[in-house]
């Protein structure tokens, strides 16, 4: 036994360390850092998430066309490979920074932190973050945004919210896009999709629109404009993902 020896010496010992930390601790810290930056500069940041092809870029294009000149808009584009989406935004003369995630299927807070240093959105601006097209992975990673916006299109089926509940649970806003295609679809229209989204998250703010035909875009742009204006006036702006009904 060690303590029977007279001289000091070394040995291996086992120890249990209590950690009690969130696995995504590092991402969450970086997200808080981004959030602090947004709050200090009174920037409204939105994280747009959807399956590939639901219309995130189209929605951004049309939103930018409508709000150009009224709000200072900046865009971070997350994409696995190409810069097509970033080019579509740049064509509208809005500053855009492209983040290539490679094989990564979602944006993480550190990538936004990096992008912000390049993009440097000024005080009072509106920042759109287009996440990688994926309804699963982006849900889990806080980027420091004020609002998570999930886009789902009418052609994707009514049960999307129930099949991918996490993203609808995390979201604050849900946009049902491609309403112009409803006449061509079988089924009960938009009602079931709407109901399913609200089952997962009764707090969801819903917008129904067509990004390419323009119907419903006014309500969305008015909401954005008002919220961006109040953000640029109010210094403290809090959004907690745990701020769900029934907990307090």
């Amino acid at each position: 036994m060690c303590n029977t020896h007279e001289h000091p010496h070394h040995h291996n010992e086992q120890a249990v360390l209590s950690i009690e930390q969130d696995i995504l601790h590092r991402n969450n810290l970086l997200a808080e850092r981004n959030r602090g930056y947004f709050e200090a500069k009174r920037i409204l940041a939105l994280n747009l998430m959807s399956s590939p092809g639901s219309g995130k870029t189209s929605l951004l294009e049309e939103t930018i066309r409508r709000l150009n000149g009224r709000l200072a808009m900046y865009v971070i584009e997350g994409d696995q490979q190409t810069s097509n989406d970033a080019n579509r935004i740049a064509a509208l003369s809005v500053p855009v920074f492209q983040v290539n995630t490679g094989t990564g299927c979602h944006l993480e807070a550190g990538m936004i932190n990096h992008a912000l240093k390049h993009l440097a959105p000024p005080e009072g601006s509106l920042l759109f973050i287009e996440n990688v097209g994926n309804l699963i992975c982006p849900a889990m990673f806080d980027l420091g945004e004020a609002y998570k916006v999930v886009v789902v299109s009418t052609t994707e089926g009514d049960d999307k919210p129930l099949k991918y509940p996490h993203i609808f649970w995390e979201a604050n806003v849900c946009i049902i896009n491609k309403t112009d295609l409803l006449p061509y679809l079988d089924g009960a229209g938009i009602q079931t999709l709407r109901e399913n989204a609200l089952k997962v998250n009764p707090q969801l703010q819903l917008f129904e629109l067509s990004a390419t035909k323009g119907a419903g875009m006014d309500a969305w742009c008015d909401w954005l404009y008002n919220i961006s204006k109040s953000t640029s006036l109010i210094t403290s702006f809090l959004n907690s993902k745990y701020d769900k009904p029934g907990i307090n």
């Binding site: 291996n12 010992e13 086992q14 120890a15 249990v16 360390l17 950690i19 969130d22 696995i23 995504l24």
Partner: peptide
């Protein structure tokens, strides 16, 4: 999603 504890050898 938590790491509760680890057992180390030192």
């Amino acid at each position: 999603l938590r790491v509760k504890s680890i057992v180390i050898n030192r």
